[in-house]
Design a protein around this nucleic acid. Structure first.
Length: 588
RNA sequence: GCGCUCGUAGCUCAGCUGGAUAGAGCAUCAGACUUCGAAUCUGAGGGUCGGCGGUUCGAAUCCGUCCGAGCGCGCCA
């Protein structure tokens, strides 16, 4: 397209200085308009001082000369619709089959990117509320990595706040219990969950009765660390059950107290000092919050980050009244640490309740990187857990919540992952435990997986016609070698062409989804592809047996159609892989 | 009071970053099983894209303003 515009400029039909940036070429929404559409004539007409339709005629004439173009139409206010020759799609299918698992790989490279997700407090097992962010972050990281960017997956362990001291005290109580003491009901303010019982037992085994009569100051740090380590072990197991993984588990405490060996010292204090030297931190006063002022509001001089200089609405405090750092202060130091490790591109995945935090964190990232680094915060909205349309009630009793593990055990990780991604991340999501195990079109997980299984089933059956087919469904290379000899010219049914187009579109889709940080686009695309495939499959029914994939007396045609099936299941398999969902060879 | 997010078919949601007659699934109605897996498919009806203005060749999409929902608003993380 650009070449055509250039030619027109050269021919004097268009001014040389014309702005081409708005010229787009993309598949139209309505397939009956052709394979590609461009707005070039409309966009360029004004600057050129020409009527859009006249200009369109001129451009169309050039396009008709192209080898790949079968048809050019001008429609509406000046759209130019291109229909490509089937050879284009056949070539794309051939490429997909040949590339196998690498199809669409590396479509959108770029600098290293750091994705932080989950970062649940290490005070207990993961609950359902965590799983959406976990799945989203993991799939986004998969997507970026597959698109060709070096990705680091990170978990920030909030092991420095007051809540881990509560954890330590709760664990200590279980320790006394493990030593045979009757501890009665768990006091208000401590974590009551049974998951702390093993921690108490571990403490009892390690220390015997040694800690029992000691004051809190003597045992707090050690008990805390053991409890945190055990909680993180549980969390990692929970994440593993969801097929979520991280490369780096980063401790907040290590920022404040220094990493092992204490070489790094207090990075939070150092960060504040640096910012202060740059004039980005000052001592000052804040106005009380509007609306409902807190009872204990106290107007005092405090250490503030000049967030308003970087786009935030108000400057933000860095120290509590007792002199310790606010969570925000250590978060600044943490993000500065990420920048120092070479990441100029940061992505954080947060829950909806942290929405009010985005501006200040983006301001902080700008401040600590001199504007070089950018932070994109993806908010995942609430998940409403249902069973057959009815809300799953969580008991109000503290410590009694639905754990992530319970949900995964009930419906499986594939269903959880797919459904979490079958929605935009910033829209609330209903998750119905009854529906996701249904085996019907109403359940997208099943529907897409069934598409893959059905494709593999065709290969199993096709061995009657083509005995040379490799038996192993996972041996894509052997299949690709055989299918390379297929005469793809035999694929000329409109349904087949539509499937080829869909397969050809996948690399573009991966690129767009990666750039937009939107893994849900993959899920929707896969559903559409599965739908087109199921449709073509059923078309080869009683009325049109000649459209069946396997034609008994025509091995060559069968081979060509198997190449199409292989293209489809390649994309289904790669796409499901990005989402972290299995692509089964058969449904059971 | 302020900020962020959202508002699309009866229900649950897409809409490729400004394109053509706004699309799927469920539900409703009408059809297709001596089949490579009917666990599927084909078709029909159903819409002031929350309202009103603006920007332009063109708006569900961008801007303004109302209405409605959710989340947040020193020393919780």
């Amino acid at each position: 397209m650009q070449a055509v515009v250039a030619a027109l400029v050269a021919a004097g039909a268009l001014p040389a200085a014309i702005d081409r940036s708005r010229v787009l070429v993309e598949p139209p929404r309505d397939p009956s308009h052709g394979d590609l559409a461009t707005n070039a004539a409309m966009v360029l007409a004004k600057d050129a001082g020409r009527k859009p339709r006249d200009l369109a005629e001129e451009i169309a004439a050039k396009l008709r000369a192209d080898d790949w173009v079968a048809k050019v139409d001008i429609a509406g206010p000046g759209f130019i619709n291109l229909t490509l020759k089937p050879q284009v799609w056949r070539a794309a299918l051939g490429a997909a089959v040949a590339a196998g698992p690498d199809y669409a790989h590396g479509t959108a490279g770029g600098p290293p990117v750091n994705v932080e997700y989950v970062s649940a407090n290490p005070t207990g097992p993961m609950h359902v509320g965590h799983c959406r962010g976990a799945v989203f972050g993991d799939a986004l990281a998969n997507l970026l990595a597959f698109a060709g960017r070096p990705v680091t997956r990170e978990y920030y362990i909030n092991d420095a706040g007051a809540q881990v001291d509560v954890l330590a005290r709760s664990a200590f109580l279980r320790y006394r219990e493990a030593l045979g003491e009757d501890i009665g009901p768990i006091p208000e303010g401590l974590y009551p969950g049974d998951y702390l019982v093993p921690v108490g037992q571990a403490l009892a085994e390690k220390f015997g009765a040694a800690l029992r009569q000691q004051p809190e100051s003597a045992w707090l740090a050690e008990v805390r660390q053991i409890a945190i380590d055990m909680m993180m072990g549980m969390i990692r197991d929970d994440l593993a059950a969801l097929n979520v993984r991280h490369d780096v588990f980063f401790s907040e405490r290590s920022l404040i107290e220094g990493a092992e060996g204490a070489k790094t010292g207090d990075q939070v204090g150092a960060t504040i000092a640096t910012l202060r030297a740059e004039g980005k931190v000052y001592e000052g006063r804040l106005p009380p919050p509007k609306g409902a002022p807190p009872e204990d509001w106290e107007d005092r001089e405090q250490t503030l980050f000049r967030a308003t200089d970087f786009g935030d609405d108000i400057d933000r405090p860095l120290k509590k009244s007792d002199g310790s750092y606010t969570y925000f202060a250590s978060d600044i130091a943490y993000h500065k640490n990420k920048v120092a490790r070479g990441f100029d591109d940061l992505i954080d995945v947060w829950g909806a309740d942290h929405g009010g935090y985005i501006k200040r964190m983006q301001a902080a990232v700008k401040a600590v990187s001199d504007g070089r680094a950018a932070l994109d915060v993806k908010i995942v909205q609430l998940v409403k857990l249902l069973r057959a349309g009815q809300p799953v009630k969580m008991s109000k009793r503290a410590g009694d919540f639905v754990t992530l593990r319970e949900v995964v055990d009930e419906v499986g990780k594939d269903a959880v992952r797919f459904m979490m991604l079958y929605r935009k991340n910033d829209a609330v999501l209903d998750f119905d435990l009854a529906k996701v195990i249904e085996q019907s079109r109403d359940n997208p997980v099943f529907y897409v997986q069934y598409g893959h299984a059905r494709g593999q089933s065709i290969f199993r059956n096709a061995r009657e016609v083509l005995p040379d087919l490799p038996e192993d469904p996972k041996d894509w290379a052997a299949r690709a070698a055989l299918l390379a000899g297929a005469s793809l010219d035999r694929l000329d049914d409109p349904g087949e062409l539509a499937l080829m187009r869909a397969v050809a579109q996948f690399p573009r889709l991966v690129e767009a989804a990666a750039v937009a940080h939107e893994p849900h686009r993959i899920a929707f695309y896969l559903y559409d592809l599965a739908s087109a495939f199921h449709g073509q499959y059923t078309r080869g029914g009683k009325d049109s047996p000649h459209l069946r994939f396997i034609i008994q007396d025509d091995p060559q045609l069968t081979l060509a159609r198997l190449a199409l099936v292989q293209g489809v299941i390649t994309v289904l398999s790669v796409g499901l892989g990005l989402l972290g969902v299995e692509a089964p060879d058969e449904m059971r």
